[in-house]
Amino acid sequence: MRDTRSRLLILITPPALLLIMFFVLPMLNMATFSFRQGAFGEERHMWTLAHYREFLRNTAFQRLLGRSIAMAFETSLYCIILAYPLAYFLIFRAGERRVALLTLVLVPAWTSFLLRILAWKLILSSEGLLSGLLQAVGLLAEPKPVLLYSRAAVVVALTYSWLPFVALPIFAALERIDPHLLEAAADLGCPPWRAFLRVTLPLSLPGVVAGFFFVFIPTLGEWVTPALVGGVDGIMYGNIIQDQFVRGLNWPMGALMSLVMLLAMLVLLGLLVWLLKALHVELGDLIG
């Protein structure tokens, strides 16, 4: 007994150490920073709530956070809509080739994130693929950027980038489903669509939720993609946070904005989990 416990401690200590050093301590540091007057010199040792007041006053920041949440939500949703049929096909239709095909889906994710965003820029720009195509069909009179430098471009580029990360957990969840369950459903006279709704979908939901989180969390703080393809109205909350640190030298405000984002994220995710639980029950009852 004693022995297992010490072994457990030995096993837990390194990851706990890493987590504390590189997650908990930096978080605490950031939280303290939000109360400092400034990042440097004497101001570093002066404490104030001024940044909190400024954030509450600044409706532009709040609106931007709201817009970024909406964009992250959209991106996650599109990712799931596209990834689910993909994973479904791989598991139930692709047969032996499923691993090979899954690898193909994942290959783009091995290249640099930046490279993939820049590739989208090439597709959407005025001399790009899409503009050329539309001109050839006669839908576009002159070379013009299509979608580029807009909110939509950010969502498109992000959806593309994160798709494999949603396909993977859904794939794993579908793979775990015991085919006997579906056979049993068919034997008992359940039509395929109903078997999907009552067996496959509920059992794969954990994968969908995991995929959603994989996309939503990093997307909300995103700033590289909006900076590259976003134009004027594609700017996200993350861009303004970056500005506070890199250009404005207003580290306390940047820290505060990051904390607010973290808080918003936790609240939203909690709400979502709660909603899914409620929905799950109702779905069962409805079809019952």
Partner: peptide, 19 residues
């Protein structure tokens, strides 16, 4: 000065964050 710079940055952030 630091004060001016902070003020200007704030204005510019407001401009970028404006709808």
């Amino acid at each position: 000065t630091e004060e001016q710079r902070t003020k200007w940055t704030k204005v510019w952030d407001d401009v970028k964050a404006a709808p």
